[in-house]
Design a protein around this nucleic acid. Structure first.
Lengths: 145, 145
DNA sequence: CCGAATCGTTGGGTCCACTAACGATTGGTG
DNA sequence: CACCAATCGTTAGTGGACCCAACGATTCGG
């Protein structure tokens, strides 16, 4: 029963990652947000929500937490006063490096029993699945715009 | 980043399964418990907790829910009055059949983009991972007993 | 100009995993 | 036998990740 296997291994993966992150008082959302900020640069919360797939209402809390620790800065956008522009600080960048280390560590722990080749195959298969399910939400012919 | 892929696909899998189960007012724990009862027969809650890896405190709620709907029976063990013996009822067996159907359906949805061969490979890889991580909790040389 | 859309925010709710504490019962050891 | 340790079931509460509905403020398009 593959979906059982998937949810279970997904669970293990999740636990490993979560534990590693917890050891530096972080959680998944923090990493996702910091990483996205570094990759794409400052952006509004809504834009970040779309890119990270973090729900906009959770984004509020996440930004609160990170801003409270000085890892990001939240500033109103002068060009559009509805928006807050979130910027990665230097401390945020340093924290991101730490989280990346942790992530790599849990990766290693997770995939320990697999050869390099097997890891690649697994990654490829999972990518296929993800691609498929990420595309699905869009219907083909919506007359929007 | 494989652990990202795993948690994400695990997520999709989880959502698909959860939604299917929800359509018959069930959730993962219900299926796990019912399936385990059918496979191993009646058992105490603690024993079921060990087999299903459902935390003993969640087991209480799960059994409450299932017993409330007549899908299992909870009876005190005459041989050990600390224990409750949980038994699968006929209605429980029927419900299990329904859940199995739902599970198969979400399975199909999940693995749609994969060929039969690929599915097998994925299953094999995930099994390897699960095996490894299920074994780990035990140390090798504990001098107990 | 006015209605529609977007943005941030608040406050909820679900599922799954887990922790801490407790009374009741049982078993083993001194 | 008495007593302590372990087990069983239960209650109550935590936390992460995901998601929904509604609101005021602002901006945009016709």
């Amino acid at each position: 029963m593959p979906s059982w296997l998937l949810t279970q291994t997904g669970n293990h993966a999740h636990r490993l990652v979560t534990d590693e992150f917890a050891s530096v008082q972080a959680r998944g959302y923090h990493y996702r947000l910091l990483a996205t900020l570094e990759e794409f640069g400052p952006a509004s919360q809504a834009a970040l929500g779309r890119r990270t797939e973090i729900h906009v209402s959770d984004m509020v809390a996440t930004v609160n937490e990170l801003a409270g620790r000085g890892l990001v800065e939240r500033a109103p956008d002068p060009a559009d006063r509805r928006r807050n522009i979130i910027t990665l600080t230097d401390a945020g960048t340093r924290q991101l490096r730490v989280l990346e280390e942790r992530l790599a560590a849990s990766q290693e722990a997770l995939l320990a029993p697999l050869s390099a080749e097997e890891r690649q195959r697994l990654t490829a298969l999972l990518s296929t699945l993800l691609d498929h399910h990420d595309r699905r939400p869009d219907a083909a012919d919506s007359p929007s715009r």
